[in-house]
């Protein structure tokens, strides 16, 4: 077992310990702590955006910039994949 393997096992165990403790000590399932913003969105989504689906109103209206960044990432990935395979498809 080389030194590299020992370092990998050690770091993996430390990260695993943090994850297990975090999963056990987080707030109980089904009772989120801070819900003010989401309650505001649930209450006002219909009158402010006109959409019955609150999730869609968040995606395209309240947090449109996130969707813009996501569209940019999708565009970049498609362009990169087509560029990578262009030579193979000739």
């Amino acid at each position: 077992m080389s030194r590299r393997d020992i370092a990998a096992v050690l770091s993996f165990s430390i990260v695993a310990m943090f994850f297990i403790f975090g999963a056990l000590m987080i707030h109980p399932f089904g009772a989120p702590d801070e819900t003010g913003m989401d309650d505001n969105i649930i209450t006002n989504a219909q009158t402010e955006t006109g959409a019955n689906n609150a999730v869609t109103s968040v995606v395209f209206d309240y947090r449109g910039f996130d969707t813009l960044g996501e569209a940019t990432i999708l565009f970049t990935a498609v362009a990169a994949v087509i560029m990578i395979f262009r030579r193979l498809n000739k």
């Binding site: 089904g30 009772a31 989120p32 989401d38 019955n52 689906n53 968040v58 995606v59």
Partner: peptide
Amino acid sequence: YREGSIAPIYTSSPGGIMALPVPQALTLT
């Protein structure tokens, strides 16, 4: 997720408390 909540969609919804919409939207992204 909130205990006993429904999806945050108002179309023919049975009423009651709704799950938080922002994490769902970010998961979609």
